[in-house]
């Protein structure tokens, strides 16, 4: 009997896929591993179909096309995500905004040719960014944007939301040990098959093959936002990263290189990793004081690593990396 259980638990299903514009990798242990993996694939495809800005038939594309004219009927899932997005806007004012679409389209960082947009154009796009213009009617199941030209971009939250959905599937399939790496957003479910917590490495923002350390996680999501993930350098050697500041209209002028957030919820981890990065060290300190449930590892401009107190025990720095407590 015990052997049967052991054999079942040693069953593993793993795969990678290209989805949501990135690479996703899964490893799942347990009796239902294969069925669970298939369900995860199905869910990711479904979410991509709902949220993609590049798929004209997605619900987000429909909302964007109807901006300033009408609201669109949306699925429960899309409504759920947009509501969560608005909740976070209220908590991270100025740093996170799902209506950032016009700015993202204008800068177009990491997608083809690049030129710094003119100040007037930036201002025009910036005027369209305002989450209060996202009109949700949960009773009717509709979502719309108040002004013409406004558009949603869920880049700062969609993969985090997907991580939460994937964890729900792990739970549904009674999986005890699994992880999903959704383009660098890691959903760690249960612990490792050997009973230890998952060790999630954190990418070094300036060394492609390097890690700054690893964080031990059970049932949580780890997300890293940094200036190194997507950026362009102009002929003058100036670096423009893809994390746009919804209050200035420019790539965030931050004194951080990257921020990693570990949280129970993928939506929170994703949105806070971006928001704390954009906020910079001082802003991040303020936000983290107000939200003790958020644990983070921050890399300062000089390469100094800061770890929140609650995470210090679970963070193991890489060789030669020195860490300060962030409080």
């Amino acid at each position: 009997m015990f052997t049967d259980v052991a054999q079942a638990e040693s069953r593993i299903a793993q795969d990678t896929q290209l989805a949501m514009g990135t690479v996703m990798a899964y490893r799942i242990w347990g009796t239902n591993a294969q069925a669970c993996l298939e369900a995860v694939f199905g869910e990711i495809a479904r979410l991509e179909g709902l949220f993609s800005r590049f798929d004209p038939d997605s619900e987000i594309s429909r909302i964007n096309r109807s901006a300033g004219r009408s609201s669109e009927a949306v699925s429960f899932t899309t409504m759920q995500m947009l509501r969560q997005a608005l909740d976070i806007c209220a908590e991270c004012p100025g740093y996170f905004d799902p209506t950032i679409g016009p700015l993202v389209a204008l800068w177009n960082i990491g997608k083809g040719s690049f030129a710094v947009p003119g100040a007037a154009k930036i201002q025009r796009a910036l005027d369209l960014v305002d989450y209060r213009d996202l009109l949700l009617d949960p009773a009717q199941g509709t979502a719309g944007l108040r002004r013409s030209g406004q558009s949603l971009d869920l880049g700062g939250i969609a993969k985090g939301f997907a991580a939460d959905q994937v964890m729900n599937i792990f739970q549904e399939y009674d999986v005890r040990s699994a992880y999903a790496n959704l383009g660098g957003n890691v959903a760690a479910w249960g612990g490792r098959p050997d009973g230890f917590p998952w060790q999630v490495g954190i990418q070094h923002p300036r060394s492609t093959n390097g890690l700054i350390g690893a964080v031990a996680v059970r049932n949580g999501v780890v997300v890293t936002s940094g200036d190194y993930q997507r950026f362009v350098t102009d002929p003058q050697g100036r670096r423009f990263h893809h994390l746009l500041d919804a209050s200035s209209g420019y790539p965030a002028a931050t004194d951080l290189l990257s921020v990693t957030v570990a949280a129970d919820s993928g939506v929170l981890a994703d949105a806070y990793a971006t928001s704390l990065f954009i906020a910079g060290k001082a802003g991040a300190r303020r936000m983290l004081r107000e939200h003790p449930e958020i644990e983070a590892v921050l890399v300062g401009q000089g390469g100094q690593i800061y770890v929140t107190k609650g995470l210090a025990e679970r963070f193991q720095p890489a060789e030669g990396i020195r860490v300060k407590i962030f409080d």
């Binding site: 990678t16 690479v23 992880y179 890691v186 060790q199 990693t260």
Partner: peptide
Amino acid sequence: LQVDTISGATLTANAYLQ
């Protein structure tokens, strides 16, 4: 660091190849 997976890794050639 014996890590299981990496958060914040850019899309590596390896991942693509996989």
